[in-house]
Design a protein around this nucleic acid. Structure first.
Lengths: 241, 241
DNA sequence: CGCCTGCTTGAACGCTATCAAAAAACGTGG
DNA sequence: CCACGTTTTTTGATAGCGTTCAAGCAGGCG
């Protein structure tokens, strides 16, 4: 497991190196750390959050809801992700964020956000890079929601999370268990719970995955990729703010 | 119609004001202008584009495809939008961009992109603001694709574009015709062409819209909003890069 | 032990896709 | 202005994927 220290995280997960000045800047920007237990809401749609967060440890997810309760999970959060960037920078959030496993977060003051931009072009660029990558991911999810069949969609989601977990240090190839309930998968894929269950079973019959109560184990990443017509993005260095 | 001059555009569409220094910086960054006719591909998935663009005039759209031809339209482009930010900043594009109407674009050198960040924190912030707003929009689209019914989805898309057009100066309330084919709508909503046609007809029967060959006229924006359980975002000033 | 949450299963219904074809609109050249 | 090919929109019929309804089962926890 990752030791939840910024430097360690940086080394283990392929983050880009950072100068002493930059590290100090971030230190000033940082206002603390916090933990968050599964099921806990970090951010609620419609509220204003004076904080930004960086995920240091654990899984989380972002979602939006309609008034009658229908819920769409937008994306999952892993170490290195910024929370609070997605909704317009200085307005109220238009999505909610919840922890999937115990999380550890680095807390920033949103009001001091502009300082980062004034003091370090590189860090500002990193922030934009992260936002840009999130967009790329959302593009992929939209393609899935709009065009793929239920089976393809499920395969896509699971390999996507598999590689996301590997790259962020949350999973290791020898023991790749993604912490999920089928209810969450249903709300991510835009399918009913019943049909999600039957779809996952079909993936299991093909020996692509195994379901283990509240977790999904990946058996054949390549097979899932082929089924979904998808490839994981190249694993380059990435910034950590 | 908008005169396609940056200052004019700025005044007409509620863009934030910009200092002389910033204007000069953008002038240096800019490498030219171009026009683009309907159906023309500005960017193709999988290629590397040495340019970034700002839309000055006209409608466009971004899309991704699966290998067997299924296509998902991700978002529409209007004046003020940046093109090329979405795919990771310095990698090959993972989506395509096409013009919907004749477009006029401002062309930037991607290689000089970092300069903006070094020279002006405010402009860097603007870029991030734009990326962040795009994410918010994509979140809304995902909610739609995953959770709304066909009728709600169509209503959402149309009011969404209606307000987008108004805010960017492409439409005026007295004559709000959104330039679209039903084929594009189908690929945006993740529905078949046939069913899209029948769904639009239902919206027309409810007197919410009227279809006029290759364009959709909005009759009742509030009615569409109510059907989609959606509200347009507040119309604040926005940056133009 | 009993309750609660999460997973599983079967059957019936219905929304949306697919197939097939025609009508309408559009652009172009004569 | 008309004829023609092409694209776009429209319509009806049939099939199927995914939803909904309704239970039942399994496992964790107080």
């Amino acid at each position: 497991m990752i030791k939840c220290d910024r430097c360690q995280l940086r080394r283990m997960s392929g983050f880009r190196s950072m100068s002493a000045d930059e590290a100090k800047l971030i230190g000033d920007f940082k206002s603390g750390e916090m933990r968050c237990e599964p099921g806990m809401n970090l951010i609620s749609e419609g509220t204003f959050s004076p904080h930004l967060y960086t995920v240091l440890e654990g899984w989380g997810f972002r979602y939006k809801s309609l008034e009658d309760g229908r819920r769409q999970i937008l994306n999952y959060l892993v170490p290195g992700d910024l929370i609070g960037l997605q909704g317009a920078l200085l307005q109220e959030m238009d999505h909610s964020v919840e922890a999937l496993t115990p999380m550890r977060l680095c807390v920033f003051e949103r009001s001091r956000f502009l300082t980062i931009f004034e003091k370090s072009a590189d860090l500002a660029f990193d922030v934009t890079w992260i936002a840009s990558r999130e967009e790329r991911i959302l593009d992929g999810h939209m393609l899935s929601l709009g065009q793929r069949t239920a089976l393809e969609r499920a395969a896509y989601l699971i390999v996507f999370l598999y590689y996301r977990g590997l790259r962020s240090g949350l999973l290791v190839p020898t023991n790749a268990q993604i912490p999920l309930s089928q209810n969450l998968i249903a709300d991510t894929l835009g399918l009913s719970l019943v049909h999600t269950n039957k779809t996952l079973k079909r993936l299991a019959q093909r020996k692509l995955i195994v379901w283990r109560g509240r977790a999904c184990e990946v058996l054949d990443p390549e097979g899932l990729c082929a089924l979904a017509e998808w490839e994981p993005p190249p694993a380059g260095p990435r910034p950590l703010i």
